[in-house]
């Protein structure tokens, strides 16, 4: 039996409202809020990046993991589309910061918004095979949309970390599933600062096809139906898509809501469904079944069926809860501050 031994999240404290972005570009805020079903997004401060978010999330995961000694972690994989270095894995710094070096395997993962769930998938496999005792999977991003582009209203920052192991589980990974095709809905070429996307092509043939394909395949593999799950967590590029795909698959709003954070967080890309899972674990009860389906443009989805164990009650408050990071102690910034924080203003070197 393999699964999650510790989990943790981190979200920067700054937020920007849809109105503030719309004002600058002469766009209609109410229609963006309605269309994307989100009101605000998180903004990382200038000294915060995928590495720093990952370290804090990993430390929270270690708090919940309890007796795991960091040197027993045999693998670290960080999924992100905003790794600070083009060449030098983010995991090298994160492993050093949590004291997990030097006997540790490390690689950075990339697959648009599903890089974090890829890391989770591979970590579970390594633990199950017996190659490592514990493995640390992180999904983290400080994503950017081009100024004025629709993505600018949603691209946000956050991280979730999971320590996978085979004993002392707080959630068992009952099974996994993957669904992937070559679908050019979103991409970024080398040396380009901002990604490109296929406009309306990002919906039906991309997000909805892969998320439903993966969810249906996952449920068929374990012989379960939507009503067998207490909760479901989907990738959330905006507030609308996960609600719509949930309805298409036959899930109720109440099953989606605890992990549905995008309306007040934005799209944390590789962190999206992983952070949604942390918020769901924060309120789950022993025995609860959770379906998780990620999505990464390009395009593919990873599916997981989690069964929560008795240990959840002991560990959930060993670290800060995700909704506390999301809703408390937040500071709203104006567009000028946001542009400065995100290095959108070109200066002389």
């Amino acid at each position: 039996m393999v699964g999650i031994v510790g989990y943790g999240a981190h979200i920067p404290r700054h937020r920007i409202k849809v109105e503030e972005i719309a004002k600058v570009w002469g766009a209609d805020a109410p229609s963006y809020k309605k269309g994307l079903m989100l009101t605000q997004k998180s903004v990382p401060s200038p000294d915060t990046d995928t590495i720093t978010l990952s370290v804090t999330a990993a430390r929270n995961a270690l708090l919940r993991a309890g007796k795991v000694n960091p040197v027993e972690i045999g693998a670290i994989y960080i999924g992100s589309e905003s790794h600070p270095y083009a060449v030098k894995p983010s995991g090298t710094v994160v492993a050093e910061a949590i004291g997990a070096t030097p006997e540790i395997h490390c690689a950075d993962f990339e697959f648009a918004c599903k890089a974090g769930s890829e890391a989770m998938f591979v970590c579970l496999g390594l633990v199950k095979s017996g190659y490592v005792k514990y493995a640390l999977a992180i999904g983290a991003d400080t994503s950017q949309g081009a100024p004025g582009d629709a993505l600018e209203y949603s691209a946000s920052a956050g991280a979730a970390a999971f320590i996978m192991g085979s004993d002392n589980l707080l959630a068992e990974a009952v099974d996994t599933y993957a669904y992937m095709t070559d679908t050019p809905d979103f991409w970024r070429r080398e040396y380009q600062f901002y990604p490109q996307h296929g406009g309306r092509f990002t919906g039906e043939p991309a997000y909805f096809k892969h998320v439903t394909g993966c969810a249906e395949g996952m449920m068929k593999k374990v012989g379960m139906k939507p009503s067998d799950f207490n909760y479901v967590v989907f990738h959330q590029p905006n507030g609308k898509f996960p609600m719509r795909v949930g309805k298409m698959l036959g899930f109720k709003k109440e099953q989606i809501e605890p992990g549905w954070l995008t309306p007040r967080l934005g799209n944390t890309y590789s962190g999206s469904s992983p952070i949604g899972l942390t918020a769901t674990l924060d309120i789950a009860k022993p025995g609860d079944m959770i379906l998780m389906v990620s999505y990464g443009s390009g395009a593919g989805s990873d599916g997981f069926v989690w069964k929560v164990t008795d240990r959840i009650n002991e560990v959930r408050d060993k670290a800060v809860r995700t909704t506390k990071l999301l809703d408390e102690n937040i500071t709203f910034v104006d567009y000028g501050t946001y542009a400065k924080f995100r290095h959108k203003i070109r200066k002389n070197d």
Binding site: D47, T48, I51, T56, A97, D349
Partner: peptide
């Protein structure tokens, strides 16, 4: 105490 970026040393 939080883990943060201290310096970037240019680009």
């Amino acid at each position: 105490i939080e883990f943060r970026r201290i310096q970037t040393d240019g680009h």
